[in-house]
């Protein structure tokens, strides 16, 4: 599965997008890995990842607002997934 075809509202698809941003195989992306310190995402990769996962129907601008404004120093893949899931997957499930 190519990362940009993956469905980020599933954990597998979300990890595929993180792996693509980090230029790693998905199998090497640990949920406890920190996006910047451990996976080595730089400022462009981080912004592309945020844009990639929010650019789906209903994810929308409020989520982009939250993600673009937060500090990412210690954020892990799990932290990001939980936040994303809480805001996006729940909205989509409600439809």
């Amino acid at each position: 599965m190519r990362a940009h075809d993956s469905d980020p509202t599933t954990q597998e698809g979300f990890i595929a997008r993180v792996a693509d941003a980090a230029r790693l195989p998905p199998s090497e992306v640990d949920l406890d890995a920190r996006l910047i310190e451990d996976l080595g995402l730089d400022s462009i990769a981080l912004l592309e990842l945020i844009a990639s996962v929010v650019a789906i129907p209903l994810a929308g601008e409020p989520l982009f607002d939250e993600l673009a404004a937060q500090r990412w120093d210690e954020t892990t893949v799990r932290d990001f997934w939980r936040r994303y899931k809480k805001r996006v997957v729940v909205i989509m499930d409600a439809d």
Binding site: S43, I44, L46, I50, A68, A69, W72
Partner: peptide, 8 residues
């Protein structure tokens, strides 16, 4: 600083 602000 690790926010995306500057890139935006």
């Amino acid at each position: 600083d690790k926010t995306p602000s500057m890139m935006l």
